[in-house]
Design a protein around this nucleic acid. Structure first.
Lengths: 284, 284
DNA sequence: TCCGGTCTTTCACTGGGTGAAAACCGAGCT
DNA sequence: AGCTCGGTTTTCACCCAGTGAAAGACCGGA
């Protein structure tokens, strides 16, 4: 009788030993804006799961409708998942409440309108209305961006809990243009200003030709849950003149959010952090 | 020594014996437009999983960001899931390509604009622009509806594969108003007309005061992948006059979809059906 | 204080999930 | 044709992640 060699079960990859659920979620997370369509092998590699496992989990996601396959056999996110995800209060819920106001804003200005929320130390664009001949801004609904450069980002950062601010300001902040602020002290000053004035201005800090004016949206509890902004050509722009319109829209949205209570006392609001303060803060 | 009673392991519910992944997905599916926020127990009941299991799976979904908790401890869909789901080609992808055209349509008409795709035997609204003082239509982005009543529905049904048409026409079709068609033969005739004319009209078949004119949007391969519609007051409406505008918008969107190829030969298109024809067709 | 509800944790058991390996498939090249 | 190469699917033992019952913690209302 040959002695059966106990398989040493090395961690197959840097990050493994994942639960089944984690693997399924990793498969979903493998999709990104630059790669919204993947083959099974790509899926397996990106999610760090073995090929057979990817195959099995993908089959289940497929059956449920979380994934779909193109005629060519490639995988992409399925409509069913989009349907369920549309129930996210901070996603479509927020969007629905805001849209009328965003459209008014667009009507008046014919410029780019953006709506964003903070997720951890970044921002996520929830809605965007792009004027046909407004400045080209390369943002995507559902896309992420840093907090320290854009108008919406500054608003969200200015009203973020202290520990989040500290954490973000502690990072090496990306510089997008010569005007991008990357010095923590400077930014701290700006944030104080944003809180005092009730709006933020980002002049050429993402692309030199664009200027954005943003204002905070408050939820039911009065906490800042999102931000709207107007993005215009950097020249031909007077921030102080634009601020009132943007602030008015923000207040309108805030009122709409506080009004119709969907079901529960809470509604749209920052999710309860996983742990307490700085330390844990969950993954990602 | 007491004989250990082998637990009979009855199927705990009507449908069980589910895989881990299926349970996680069932938790997500427990959320609906009417109940976008649930307690753990509700979640457990709706998803037909035991409470401890719901607790464990929910914890993982929470950690990943697929779910979030309100201060009150209730669960709702998380922004992270919304982010990933926004990569669905038939969801936001389609929406992004269509939005400029929908906005033009809105500019011109100031009425309700709807964009929908077919999912199985129903339709899902992907976008909606609601005129402030246009007819009140109670549709929700991400919401489902029957195919046989609305304008978009008729277009999608008219261009659906034969087996889907047969299946849908075989159902007991809901009647929403006195004008709703429910007779298969009548509908079949209407569908032929829709294909011939290139647009569909639904006059008071959902609510008596609304009339909608819809046109098909084709994808890269030439197959119909979505439909746009204009919903106006039933009186004061001349379908034949509205049809050209709607069709023009639909063609514009079709062209946009065929133009920028994102990555793969396929792009937006009907997902490959799970099995062959009528029989299997997956769940739900 | 007690009671009904929900949430969380513990515990021993077991079947769903696992990766390695091999078979399969189809497109492109010689 | 024959060969090769990437990707996909299936098989096969092994075993640990996941399981439900039950008990414990917690909370708000009576």
């Amino acid at each position: 009788m040959a002695v059966r060699q106990t398989p040493v079960r090395v961690q197959p990859d840097g990050a493994a030993g994942k639960s089944v659920t984690a693997k399924a979620l990793a498969l979903l997370a493998a999709f990104t804006p630059d790669a919204p369509e993947l083959t099974l092998s790509e899926l397996s590699r990106r999610a760090h799961v073995s090929l057979p496992t990817a195959h099995r989990r993908a089959a289940e996601l497929l059956e449920w409708g979380a994934l779909e396959r193109t005629p060519a056999g490639h995988y992409h996110i399925g409509l069913r998942l989009w349907e369920v995800a549309s129930l996210a209060p901070r996603g479509l819920g927020l969007r629905e409440a805001s849209l009328p106001f965003l459209e008014d804003l667009y009507e008046i200005t014919r410029e780019n309108i953006q709506l964003a929320v903070r997720e951890d130390g970044e921002l996520v664009f929830v809605e965007r209305i792009a004027g046909r001949n407004a400045v080209r801004v390369r943002t995507r609904v559902g896309g992420r961006f840093a907090l320290h450069a854009t108008g919406v980002g500054l608003v969200l950062l200015a009203h973020a809990p202290a520990d989040v601010q500290e954490r973000v300001l502690g990072w090496r902040l990306d510089r997008y243009t010569s005007k991008t602020m990357t010095d923590p002290a400077t930014i701290r000053e700006v944030l104080a200003n944003v809180r005092a004035r009730g709006y933020a201005v980002s002049d050429g800090q993402v692309t030199l030709d664009a200027l954005s004016v943003a204002a905070p949206i408050t939820g039911r509890t009065g906490a800042v849950v999102a931000a709207v902004s107007l993005v215009v050509h950097a020249d031909s722009a007077d921030p102080t003149a634009l601020a009132p319109v943007v602030r008015a829209a923000a207040r309108g949205i805030s009122r709409a959010l506080s009004g119709n209570r969907p079901r529960d006392s809470a509604g749209i609001g920052a999710p309860v952090p996983a742990s307490g303060t700085a330390a844990g803060e969950g993954l990602r």
